[in-house]
Amino acid sequence: MRKNIPALILAICLLALWQGIAMIINAPYILPTPVQIIIRLWELRETLFLVQLPATMSVTALGLVISIVLGIFLAVIMDMNKMIENALYPVIVASQTIPTTAIAPLFVLWFGYSIWSKVLVTILITFFPIAITVYDGFKGTSREMEELLITYGATKKDIFLKLKMPQALPNFFSAIKMAVPLSIIGAAIAEWLGAQSGLGYFSKRMMTQLDGAGVFAPVVLLSVVAMIIVGIINILENKIIKWRKEL
């Protein structure tokens, strides 16, 4: 708790600065104050919490789960076979050069306003850090430990289950912590570009009404949700990886 105090002080200072500047500018449709955003968040609580947040979270959750499965699958097959690694790795990296905001409207054309157009954008943004980080975890396996297992007569499956998987677990958690905010950003971008509900869509709608605080309110909500999820993952990580101090 104590180590978080400097971050808390800095956050309060930045918010105070924002409040001061916004009050001086006095144009809430461009730059609302943090207080105005919180008030708007409260005013819009019903639609934000009961309609828009569940819509965004279902895109995020679906996109994240598929990304985790896809990312781990890619990491495993790249680790298993050098030829697959040589073929896949450049393609995976190239997939990240695709400008998501440019391609997302195409997904809307393909899948309409269904959840899948948004899920696809989320996957495109999220699977990459999972695949690469977990793959790096597998590659970072101690050669000496692997050889020790071989001297015990271990099969490839034994080596994977007893060495590579547990050794890559910290990488897996790092990947998830990166992937959660990215999946939320992905879902929000997709909603901005074409949706009928969700926090991204709602923020865009508020923009057309020149409601500055209304634009910021869903963004603040998204940030808070992302921080809570990452916090929960941190707690889980500390519970599961008790041996971490050694690494």
Binding site: M145, L148, T151, P166
Partner: peptide, 11 residues
Amino acid sequence: YMPQKDLLFPW
């Protein structure tokens, strides 16, 4: 085989 390092698995 017992190697130079203990190679105990930390997890």
